[in-house]
Every structure is written in structure tokens, then in C-alpha cells.
Amino acid sequence: MTGRILPFGPRLAPPPEPVAPRGGVRRADEVDEEGLTPTDHERFRRVVLPHMDSAYNFARYLCRDPSQAEDLVQDAFLRAFRGFRGFRGGDPRAWLFAIVRSSHLTWARSQGGQRVQPFPADVEQAPTEDDTPEAALVRQGEVDMVRGAIAALPEPFRETLVLRELEELSYREIAEATSAPIGTVMSRLARARQMLLAALPPLLPTEEQRP
């Protein structure tokens, strides 16, 4: 059981001087000793971690694939964590979304379009989380339909709509997160809504007559 105990002196000593970055890539272990203090850790957990659902929701609608969304969010939190000193305050979500989005774009570019599926998993059938009573069954059909309709929107419209309707960002925050002029945000949102209205069947079979 008790094996040889490793001589652990070197590791407990102050960290050795940093090796020069290779290929311009930042060393991953700059994080702690040189980067973030325990206070930063605590602040990150308080300020950024609560938005994990939001980040996942955005990532999921961006890439429309559950496991890819997990990768994106984990990657984004790692990058957010390392770059936390660069966070200027303001709504942490807009900042986080911008990071998720850039991770997504990096990934999409690295795929060179070869894995761009016209109908990814989430478009056709959206698996759902736990929901208990019978009434949920009916509602779930509606939820799947709405999710599918959103997932089928072209990306610029999809991301704008999700940030507005599901994450409730202001036009200005959406513009910031998506690096788009505010006018573009507005026209994308209007177009996204028109496309959704066209794609979704009316909520009730017997719709009440309009005024």
C-alpha cells in the first residue's frame, strides 16, 4: 500500500521561471502563480459561474449539438478564467457570450465547412430534460417544436434571437456580444421573428379571431 514516497521538494519550491511561450501560444500555467489570485478565483466564481446555464444555452443554439456545446462552454470558461483580468466590468454575460461565440467560430473555421450539417441533431428532434406530469407531455411537444424552429434559423438570425428572447440582452449588449452594429442587430431580430412566425404553426388549432 505505502509505496515509495516521491521526493517532492522541487514542486513545493517557488515555481521555476516561465519558459518562453512556444509558437506565440500563451502558457496554460500562467493562470495561477502569475495570473489570478485567490480573490480573483472567488470573484470569478461569484460573477461568472452563475451564468453557466446562459452560456450553455447560447452555445447549444449556436452549434446545435449537445456534446459540442459542452466542449464550447468548457473551453469558453477556461478562456474566460484565464482572461478574467481583462474583464472590464459591465454585464459579465455579454462578455461571456462573446467568448463562447469566438470559440464557436474558431471551431467552425477549423472544420473548414466539412462538418456543417444542414440539419444537426437539435433541428430535427430536440431531446428534453426532466419534466414530470402528464400535462408536460403536451407542452413538451410545443417546446420541441419551438426549439427546432429556432435551431433551423440561419446562424446570424439564430444567435441574435437567442440573445434577445432567451437571454434578454439589450440591443446594445447583443451588438457587443456579436460584434455587429446595432442597426444590424435590429434588422436581424425582425427577420428572425418573421422566419419563426412563418415556421411555427399557430399555437392553438382553433385560434381566436383577430380584432
Binding site: L49, Y56, Q74, L78
Partner: peptide, 28 residues
């Protein structure tokens, strides 16, 4: 439309396993 899109359940929630990984990653 806004009510339908904003209905509960349409937004995705982070899976627990992901949450735990990220919390472990950012632990002090």
C-alpha cells in the same frame, strides 16, 4: 411569438456533469 419562444423549457440548461467540471476547474 415572444411568449412561445420565452416559454419555460425552450432555453437549454447546462448538464450537471459540465457544471461540476467547470466548478472544479475554477476552484480556488
Amino acid at each position: 411569438l415572444k411568449a412561445r419562444v420565452g416559454a419555460p423549457g425552450v432555453a437549454w440548461r447546462a448538464p450537471d456533469a459540465l457544471r461540476q467540471r467547470i466548478e472544479a476547474m475554477t476552484a480556488p
